[in-house]
Simulated scan of single mutants.
Amino acid sequence: MTIPEDDPIRRLTIADPDDPALPHVAVVGDTYTILVSGKHTGGRYCLIDMLVPDDGGPAPHRHDFEEMFTILEGEIEVTFRGDKHAAKAGSTVNIPANAPHGFKNVSGAPARMLCLCTPAGQDEFFLEVGTPVASRTAPAPAMSEDEQKAFMAKAKELAPQYRTELLPPGE
């Protein structure tokens, strides 16, 4: 096997999660910072810093790409194919492509984790459905019931474009 030549168009990426120039977005009450986007990696992967408030996290969903979380702070309850699993700070969780899953912060305090998706695309989905916030630690803005319904309608409409399926609660 021959290794391809270096691509001089691709650049080194060094991401400081507290850099105000990075995209920080509120999604489902969590705050996500796109550290390394698919644009940086030629679509190979993306890396997202996730700040999840107590009791926060996404509803059940699945997608056709691999997703891996490393818990930096707190404890997350991962629901994988209907079964609940605990993952505390220092743990890494790999979600195989297509598997139904979701997670919830059960720490009693904010939890922080890194999320790696391969190939990239989840970063673009979050940017399209999320609400921009000022920083990695900015809380998600409060949403009225009508705003929550509008968000869910937009997420459901866009999810298939990003190879994602939102599932009913309990799956």
Rank of each mutant, 00 (worst) to 15 (best):
G57P: 01
P132S: 11
K88P: 08
C46A: 15
A140D: 02
T33Y: 00
K156H: 13
D30Q: 13
V129H: 02
G57E: 00
P8W: 01
G108A: 12
G82R: 04
R81A: 15
Q122R: 09
D30I: 06
R10V: 13
A15Y: 00
T79Q: 09
R10H: 10
E67V: 04
T13C: 10
T33D: 01
H61N: 13
R11L: 15
L51P: 02
G57T: 01
T79E: 01
G29A: 07
A153Y: 05
G102M: 02
T79M: 07
A89F: 06
F125T: 01
D146C: 04
A159V: 06
S107V: 06
V129C: 09
E66L: 10
I76S: 03
I76M: 13
G74H: 00
S107M: 06
Y45L: 14
E165C: 05
D18K: 13
E67P: 05
Q148Y: 07
A111L: 11
M68H: 05
S107N: 07
R44D: 12
P132T: 11
D83Q: 15
K149M: 10
G74T: 03
A89S: 15
P110M: 06
P110N: 13
D19F: 05
L35V: 10
Y162C: 05
H85K: 15
G38S: 14
T33E: 01
M113A: 15
P168H: 02
M152D: 06
I9A: 15
P160K: 10
S144E: 03
P20D: 05
T13L: 14
D18N: 12
D146P: 05
E77D: 13
G108W: 00
K104H: 06
M68A: 14
P58Y: 02
G57I: 00
S107R: 02
T33H: 01
